[in-house]
Design a protein around this nucleic acid. Structure first.
Ligand SMILES: [Mn+2]
Ligand SMILES: [Mn+2]
Ligand SMILES: [Zn+2]
Ligand SMILES: [Zn+2]
Lengths: 146, 146
DNA sequence: TTTGTAGCAAGAACTATTCTAAATATCATC
DNA sequence: GATGATATTTAGAATAGTTCTTGCTACAAA
């Protein structure tokens, strides 16, 4: 495959991604951010930064791992995606913005989104100190899909 | 303060800790493991490995950080304490073995144990795939204690 | 065009944690 | 109690995910 000059340059002027808007939540969607976001939306496998890096290389051969980290951080900070951590493992990234938890299947290593049953408000079930303002809840499950 | 010869030696033969048994859950409680565990039980502040390290130095001047990590890992693996992770921050350690979550107060940086209200079974509230064996649940809250 | 700002790439730096190797302690057996 | 095997500790080196620095490119405003 022969790359056009535009495809070989390093920055956002490269061939645009038609199906992803130029801006989301006030964040300018550069070509790199678009590819990172597209990859997350496509394979919803909660990939690590490095898996994203490898996954977008075909579309963006000159992208750097630092840029992937920058893009992921920007997307997280603008609440376009979420960062998910399991113990001390590499961070993973999730484009599902609905309130949900994460089930880590130990046999396959895969991660599955877990919804709450309808009508459940989690903070109601917790014995929280009075005057507590909760900004974020994270639920992580570990086990096996027998 | 003048240290006795026993206090200056490096291993478990040092002055025993009366109030901590010689063995817990099949783990031999060496002097180092005793001091790590005693510190966790005393200041229930979910300290990091480094905070434990600094906290037990007065009692055990020659202890090394690697040993603190070794002790913490041994205690975790024998289910004497629990390891708690917040995002990518350094791991913290908790001697409370009851099922509980952790509330991270962003203003003070402190961490508080959060119990569930009586009669709550968390897995009942989740929309889990069938035939799922859950081995561990972790609940983490972030916010402010207004 | 000029000038300013944002974004990117490459590699260095950072840091929590783990590993390695040698010394010491404890345990089992005599 | 000596002796040999095993477990633990220590200091420092190594690791790895992530962040930082620097120089460069793209884009926007004037
Ligand atoms: Mn990663
Ligand atoms: Mn630590
Ligand atoms: Zn998810
Ligand atoms: Zn706790």
């Amino acid at each position: 495959m022969i790359l056009s000059f535009a495809e070989m340059t390093t920055q956002a002027s490269e061939t645009p991604n038609k199906d992803i808007p130029e801006e989301i939540n006030g964040l300018r969607m550069t070509r790199q951010r678009q590819e990172v976001y597209r990859f997350l939306m496509g394979e919803r496998i909660h990939p690590t930064a490095n898996e994203v890096f490898m996954g977008i290389k075909k579309a963006l051969p000159n992208v750097s791992l630092a840029t992937v980290y920058n893009c992921l951080e920007a997307l997280v900070q603008h609440k376009i995606i979420r960062q998910v951590n399991f113990d001390r493992e590499p961070s993973r990234y999730c484009p599902n913005l609905d309130e949900h938890g994460h089930f880590h299947d130990e046999t396959t290593g895969t991660i599955h989104d877990v919804k709450f049953k309808p009508g459940i408000n989690l903070t109601d079930l917790l014995d929280l100190p009075p005057n507590t303002v909760i900004k974020d809840i994270e639920i992580t499950l570990r086990g096996q899909l027998a």
